[in-house]
Design a protein around this nucleic acid. Sequence first.
DNA 1: AGCGCGCATGGTAACGTCAACATGACGAGA
DNA 2: TCTCGTCATGTTGACGTTACCATGCGCGCT
Lengths: 332, 332
Amino acid sequence: MQKRVSMADVAQHAGVSGQTVSRVVNNSPRVDPATRARVEQAMATLGYRPHRAARALRTGRTHTIGLVVSTLATVGNSRMLQAVADAAASRGFALTVVTLGYSDDISLAFERLVEQGVDGAIVLNEATAAARGARIPLGLRLVVVDSLPDDRFVSVQTDHAGGARSAVEHLLQLGYETVWHVAGPRGSFAAEQRENAWRETLASAGARVPQVLRGDWSAASGAAAGVQLAESGATAAFCANDQMALGVLRALAEAGRRVPDEVAVVGFDDVDDAAQYRPPLTTVRQDFDVLGERAVAMLVHAIDGGESDHDERVATTLVVRQSTRVVDYDAR
Amino acid sequence: MQKRVSMADVAQHAGVSGQTVSRVVNNSPRVDPATRARVEQAMATLGYRPHRAARALRTGRTHTIGLVVSTLATVGNSRMLQAVADAAASRGFALTVVTLGYSDDISLAFERLVEQGVDGAIVLNEATAAARGARIPLGLRLVVVDSLPDDRFVSVQTDHAGGARSAVEHLLQLGYETVWHVAGPRGSFAAEQRENAWRETLASAGARVPQVLRGDWSAASGAAAGVQLAESGATAAFCANDQMALGVLRALAEAGRRVPDEVAVVGFDDVDDAAQYRPPLTTVRQDFDVLGERAVAMLVHAIDGGESDHDERVATTLVVRQSTRVVDYDAR
DNA sequence: AGCGCGCATGGTAACGTCAACATGACGAGA
DNA sequence: TCTCGTCATGTTGACGTTACCATGCGCGCT
């Protein structure tokens, strides 16, 4: 690796001072167009790249944001990661990823981020409770995705309640007398929101509220819930995510229940695979790209010293496929 | 944010020079145990954290590695990302993620990484060809996952050929006269390896080699291939990944073919969901954790100035589930 | 003509760290 | 006793950048 090109090199080559080069790099208006052109020419010739570490040392800003994520095993988290990565890149921010691993200790993740000198971080975490209790290092700007509102940080969330309501109402409108629910794990904000909305929608429609079944987002846990659904004679089920719905579909098939003829199933997320489940899954689409984009936008705004906005909410869309169908009264 | 604690502060508090603090931080042996204890005490009291940017500026090492990934839409890539993140964290390296987006231009990704000053990078890229042509910036240490050997970088790969062979042999041993193949996209190293091994295994068993079908790793493309499989009367199919197998399973079901009774299906990857496909999928397990761990280990070794090792290969395991079964000759 | 002001540019120091060299104390061997 | 080597520690400067202040020039106004 030959010696790296510094501002001083560019300055000498262009016959100006280092300070002027700095001004060109930072788009300062106080530069004569002719000089600017000369400097830019020199930068191109020498292949100059600003040195982020030096800049960070001087300014205290690293132009790097962190992403704290509990696990990438769920497809939703992976999709969010990609959305966040792209949004950050388009703003010239680097993204560094920290996973929680088995430890639920989010404080540890914060420590790491501070040490790495990120300007701020986005938290994507199932464990709402953990985030609440955690000590947030002073000066660490935070945007939390899917969390209870908190005055220590700004949050962005999918409209889980609205999405769940649309799913349950869809099933009720098709003629089912009630809808069972396969919920996500306790302590997950998203899971709680979806479950509550499911319960409330049933209640306000005057429908019976069955015992809630609970999984951990994995397809395997969905299958376990599916066995129970089959045993309890459920005719319509709303699953808190698509992967659990996959497990439910398999369990129902093993129990000899046909979907949608005997049992209707709805998921949440609309992951790519959902259209290829058997049968293709009716589900509530989350717009991960918008969610990631908003999270980054709000974080960068905060980093630039802007006021903390209000919290934001992103709408969902119900995607109807073949796992739900109008109840055929004659056939029953 | 109050002023950050620097070495000078610790030095003053402990009554030593900054240099001695530096030595303590870097575990230099030239420090008296008593002094070391005093300095460590001071660091703890003041809550000192080394400033990565300053260190990077001085040493030229950022203790950060980059991950270049084409997309996170495939479950395999997400799993790799998690494995790499954990392996990097356990070595005290930060991980920054760069996605390629729509552009196939990996040189652009390299530029970004160099600018961010990473010490090295791991490349996870479908587009083998793109990586070959790309200009690699001088001094950027590289470990490429799943690529043709190249003397400009070290590589780690799953034993795609071995895995594919075990899948095809499994089917042949069950009694099928031949095995169809749903391949991954052209230009993907992994896809090519699996396809070639499939072809060779059939050939050396004296079996007919059917026309290859091709997808793009997505479940939707698998479904398209599944339609063709049904039309051509295939009785056994080996899919280049699990997600395409999911699509194949649905297409076969729609065409009225029962799996495994009429058609046997095998996948590749063993993603978490595969056990909940209908029927549960026989598949070739890739050990993503080992793959990620090895990639990081080799990269860190290279960064520390070690010699480039030979390329490495990680073994696979065939996981037999219900999508394959011994051919029932009587029933045919 | 003299004065002040806006504008382009330059000089200098500092961000926190670490490598290289310098210093000083102490003990062993001649 | 003198010298030399070893070890713990201190001093200095530099990595590349930018904030702050200084400089000098030209122009318009009194």
